[in-house]
Design a protein around this nucleic acid. Structure first.
Lengths: 345, 345
DNA sequence: ATTGGCAGTCATGTCGGGTGAGTGCCAGTC
DNA sequence: GACTGGCACTCACCCGACATGACTGCCAAT
């Protein structure tokens, strides 16, 4: 049975090990923390924790270090949310203070988070709230290829290349552009997609295929969010904590260069009621990230679906501090991206 | 005096050291290469090379390794351009084969180059050729902020946030948009910028400041290239060759995360007549990259100014192979981005 | 100019002993 | 029953000694 004190012991083992990077023994525990019992008693508690696979000894007769499971218990039960320090709040305020372009806001956010936590920071692009089509532009790139640009009034700009396979006359292109704008300008995105599905019908048989093709691509653009992208910063921090990885950081760097992997990981995280979620060590093994932990929190941009942001680092990380930073940044970002819209016309 | 044979010795020292990562001694040279002289003779040659600071001994009585200066001589005089292998050419063809969106082409290019060389690959965005304004869109983001989107017929889409500081009525915004498009649509970029500089004059005194502000930002957009951006791939390769860096790869990763640094580095490279340029070891020290070498080649997108692409890796790298790959990829990319326009309307 | 020979240097690997941190267990105490 | 002090035992780690081997630099001979 794991007593209350045993869990306290686990807590200090995690804390001390994270701070010192050295296995922590019974003696150093009684020295550094006022447990009011002797080292032998702590040893008994440690035996229980080892029984439960919450801690382990790297080799006979050395101190103990937490297992993945131990970290998990620590994160779930033992980490008391400590509010950010004043300078940290300050940093967030000033860094995210003035708003700007979405790209820039996210860029600043991800750099901020990485500096705050000294880990790799990740921010997924948000879906924006219900918005309307503002303008559609078709730009000829070569005789058979056209770039379509969709602008919505939420500020999203989405470009895509269309290869029609057949040459296109300039007049027809102009006609297409005018008709497209006439039919979907100002419409909500769902309505626009519906309208586009029958767009090709108004053209002559010879032209309908091309018009239909363009409408189909545009329809994709209308419906596509940007949640399939994320920005990253602070990869260098992995090198700083290099010793926490067995062998090399090569596989870790390789895995995080693959955005698809990270997005899948984000997608599979199961947030608690506050939107927070942690994934520790081998829980990430299927993503090639079994030697890392990932802390994420959800955030929303005014009315859109929740997106996620977070940090990735070695299992031996400062969970308490990093959790606080991730939560706080997610909170501020939601507010920032929310306010943009609320103060709207 | 450095004899002809001395330079041959330098060549094999570079080659063998790059391949084996171990200091190379006189004996192994006569064993592995048919010099027709004895080890003692090679030793004499090596003494000359050491005198010239082209090679150095890590410690008394061990083999020699090239100095930065030695690599420089190797690259400038001794590296015979070896054409790419058939599979490599094949890879380039298939990878870059079908063209698409500029973002996608550059993304594929940078991944290709990193796989070909097993180094960090870098591609700077090109300036596109002379192009015309296709459309200007103003999207209200909040009561005082507007996003301006510029689309040119070369396919560039540039968005920027404008904070006007004062509330803006919707009708005025519509009026602005219409007048902007009327005055610069279809114009070449230089002409458009000129027109924009006096754009504010046509408005009443109360509105001129706002109109002028918008015109000024738009003018910046019109003139801005995208050469201030670059894409990167293969950062993980640095970890693979970790041992080639004294201490940690942390400072290197940190430096390459700073795009500004890399762009400055690109800017200061002095290409030879073929557009190629190498910067070795301490030559990069001012960028925090004194332990790396950078190989770049210029490329152009139909009519634009030359941009650069290249690889970055440890000083001890396969210069011959990487130089060939960089040259070849630059060549193919130029052709790809050039053809797009030549087959244009 | 080239060569063979030889003494000298130095990194590397191995082995053994000493050290110390830390555990597990047990008998005794509260 | 929970806690404690004591003790034997286990290893990782450090250190010095020693052997090994790969080189070089130099010199006299060709």
């Amino acid at each position: 049975m794991v007593s209350e004190r045993s869990l306290d012991v686990l807590r200090v083992i995690v804390q001390d090990y994270v701070a010192s990077r050295e296995p922590v023994g019974s003696k150093s525990i009684v020295e550094r923390h006022a447990f009011g019992v002797s080292a032998a008693t702590i040893r008994n508690d440690m035996a229980v924790l080892e029984e439960e696979e919450l801690i382990t000894a790297p080799h006979t007769s050395s101190g103990r270090i937490p297992t993945d499971k131990g970290y998990r218990v620590f994160v779930d039960q033992l980490a008391d949310l400590r509010p950010l320090s004043a300078p940290q709040r300050q940093a967030i305020e000033t860094f995210l203070g003035r708003s700007a372009d979405l790209d820039e806001v996210l860029g600043r956010t991800v750099r901020l988070l990485s500096q705050l936590t000294h880990q790799v920071a990740l921010v997924q692009y948000p879906t924006l709230g219900p918005s309307r089509v503002r303008h559609v532009e078709l730009v000829p790139m070569s005789s058979t290829r056209v770039m379509s640009v969709l602008i919505t009034d939420s500020g999203r700009v989405d470009q895509r290349m269309i290869d029609l396979g057949v040459p296109l006359e300039t007049e027809f292109l102009g006609d297409l552009r005018a008709r497209l704008n006439a039919s979907i300008d100002g419409l909500g995105l769902a309505d626009a997609a519906a309208r586009l599905s029958t767009f090709g019908d108004q053209f002559s048989a010879s032209r309908a295929p091309v018009a239909g093709q363009v409408a189909a691509i545009l329809s994709e653009q209308v419906l596509a969010g940007r949640q399939d992208r994320l920005v990253m910063a602070g990869a260098a921090n992995l090198a700083r904590t290099e010793d926490d990885f067995t062998g090399s950081i090569f596989p870790v760097l390789e895995a995080i260069e693959e955005q698809v992997t990270l997005l899948r990981l984000f997608g599979e995280m199961a947030p608690d009621e506050s939107g927070f979620s942690a994934s520790i060590g081998r829980e990430n093994a299927s993503f090639g990230l079994g030697e890392t932990s990932v802390l994420t929190s959800g955030y929303t941009a005014s009315g859109g679906d929740p997106a996620r942001l977070g940090v990735l680092g070695p299992i031996r990380m400062d969970y308490v501090g990093n959790m606080a930073a991730v939560r706080a940044v997610a909170h501020y970002l939601s507010r920032l991206l929310g306010d943009d819209e609320r103060s709207d016309r």
